[in-house]
Design a protein around this nucleic acid. Structure first.
Lengths: 203, 203
DNA sequence: GATTTTACTAAACACTGTTCAGTAACTTTG
DNA sequence: CAAAGTTACTGAACAGTGTTTAGTAAAATC
């Protein structure tokens, strides 16, 4: 039995090593610079070996996406411990935007990369993202119940706020904000976030 | 001189034919299915010929992006003739979202595709997009001047509204709304648009 | 120690964007 | 109108992708 468990462990280690290499390359060169041969070279194995541990490049993509989802969850975690639902919601939003601006590549991977997607619902990263989203909706629900808004349409409120935050980050990440000078962009983002908070208060 | 002008005309015609083929393939198979060989096959020339009329694939990409920008401008045009700035702004927003949901591929090309971008500011599509954006900002400015809002920060108001609309469309286009059943998504988008309008009224 | 199973790889395939030498038709020149 | 020059085009190749397969050497089992 010892040999079998060792082999299992070695298999897992190799998967980790591959993913870790993919992670590094992704951070250094983005998703475009990430290819099977570059991973193989970094772990000092032949390209074909990769396929003994991952079905195809998509599977590696999904594994990376999971890491991104985990990083995002960890980034948002501090908000969870805030008692007051409104303050929690605001901090959640602030951290969401903060994550996107600090880690554009991760955000890109999670929300903007086209890539596989075919069966993303079956991937672990999806359930992780769903959990984070559920937490967000619950916080909005808590605000609704505590009568922080006039409106009681939790789903629409949550979705509207998400649209704004996602739009804000997306315009940054895909660099469609070039009509504004670089040094003004951060300021504009902060002002816009403050504005949507103000708007939400009078919702 | 007649020969020279004929050649010029033929050159322009060929460019048009290439772009038109690229357009069709893009609409049929998306940007992923669009490659030089497929364009060449459709116009019944060899792949190498493409390079006599376009420097590289990026140049074709920019030309397509220009078409998308023009299509978007045309889609938004009806709003321009509305006198009342607030009604114009709302209709502009409605048409913007409408365009994104009706032509996800065009929207993707304009705002979500990574692709070249290096010198997009130098491309025609950029100035076209800038003009459309300027019209949007002017409309917001007109609303501010007509005291439709309490706030007078035109730039931030415009940007905030854009973030929402862009986020809304992006989540659709890149299919990150799968937590909502397909038949509810359209309704949710409409409700959210109505909500941001209401929020803006009390801005 | 012989046999089976495992881990790995070299080489290839199919598909991309792109380049280049060569050719055939067209245009200009004498 | 024939020779020379120019232009439009292409076949074949190169380099870079993801992926598969046949073969091999080491490890595990018997």
């Amino acid at each position: 039995m010892s040999i079998a468990t060792r082999k299992e462990r070695e298999k897992a280690e190799m998967r980790t090593r591959i993913l870790s290499a993919a992670h590094d390359i992704f951070k250094e060169n983005g998703y475009d610079g990430l290819n099977i041969r570059s991973i193989a070279e970094r772990i000092e194995y032949s390209p074909a070996t990769i396929y003994l541990y991952y079905k195809d490049k998509n599977e590696i993509f999904f594994a990376l996406q999971y890491e991104a989802a985990a990083a995002k969850r960890d980034h948002l975690l501090p908000a969870a411990s805030i008692e007051d639902p409104w303050k929690r919601l605001v901090e959640f939003g602030r951290l969401y935007v903060d994550f996107g601006l600090k880690h554009p590549d991760w955000y890109d991977l999670l929300f903007l990369t086209r890539a596989p997607m075919e069966h993303i619902e079956n991937q672990e990263c999806w359930s992780l993202g769903m959990a984070t989203h559920a937490f967000f909706v619950e916080t909005v629900q808590a605000c609704v119940e505590a009568r922080y808004f006039k409106s009681t349409d939790t789903a629409t409120i949550a979705y509207t706020l998400w649209c704004h935050a996602h739009g804000l980050v997306s315009l940054f990440v895909r660099e469609r904000m070039r009509m504004y000078p670089p040094e003004e962009r951060g300021e504009l983002a902060r002002k816009s976030f403050a504005m949507i908070v103000k708007m939400a208060e009078s919702l």
